[in-house]
């Protein structure tokens, strides 16, 4: 298999990510990895639910007074939109439109950074209220759950940026198509996890 072979929109396969054996393996392996990641987050969620609002006697913090939904709602919208833009990017990859894909990925990355900025702002705000990492079991489990998600966002951003830079001059090949594809899968996964965080941590925390 010649990895550097150049394709045109006419010869470009329908599922460029799954043409080579390497691509097939990456595709499957990454899905399996996400299966494991699901269990990882499930463990974090379970722990959070067990420790929510638990702290030293007389703790003043609780989910209904701490969280503010408007900010988190904006964050949710931003991340959901970024998932949509990454779908556009993949659509352009299928159509062998490299510029289109890079553009939509760039937008995805910008939205990702916006989300990250708001999250840092939010964490900073809590810390200033005295809700620090070591303040209680509640705070530890909250920051660990949401922070692990945040770390995934950071990794996702780094990964997508690296891919965009690396391939900027090279264009599409059957070698990098699976990489783009799995990166976008990862981004969707991050988005899905956030939907659960929004529901379980924030919504159920304030109104539940």
């Amino acid at each position: 298999m010649d990895f550097n072979k150049k394709y045109t929109p006419q010869t470009w396969p329908d599922h460029p990510e799954q043409v080579t054996l390497e691509g097939k393996n990456k595709f499957l392996g990454f899905w399996l990895f996400l299966g494991g990641e699901t269990v990882l987050f499930a463990s974090l969620f379970a722990t959070y639910l067990a420790l929510k609002n638990k702290g030293p006697s007389g703790m003043e913090f609780s989910t209904d007074t701490l969280f503010e939904l408007p900010l988190v709602f904006i964050m949710t919208m931003i991340l959901l939109t970024s998932s949509l833009t990454s779908v556009y990017a993949m659509y352009h990859m299928k159509n062998h439109n490299f510029r289109g894909m890079q553009t939509w990925l760039a937008i995805t990355v910008l939205l990702g950074f916006a989300f990250l900025g708001l999250e840092i702002y939010e964490f900073n705000h809590y810390v200033h209220l005295g809700f620090t990492y070591g303040q209680s079991a509640f705070s530890s489990s909250f920051f660990t759950l949401v922070g692990t998600h945040g770390l995934h966002v950071v990794i996702g951003l780094g990964w997508i940026i690296l891919l965009m830079l690396r391939n900027a001059k090279r264009g599409f090949s059957l070698y990098n198509a699976p990489k783009y594809y799995t990166a976008s899968l990862y981004w969707h996964f991050i988005d899905v996890v956030w939907v659960f965080i929004f529901t379980v941590v924030y919504l159920m925390g304030v109104v539940g």
């Binding site: 420790l51 702290g55 703790m59 070591g134 209680s136 079991a137 509640f138 530890s140 660990t144």
Partner: peptide, 21 residues
């Protein structure tokens, strides 16, 4: 990860005086 956080980075997952379990 929790054990590392509790022992080295000030977490409270398992410390019942801080609400842990």
């Amino acid at each position: 990860f929790f054990l590392i956080l509790d022992r080295m980075f000030g977490g409270n997952f398992f410390d019942h005086t801080m609400g842990g379990n």
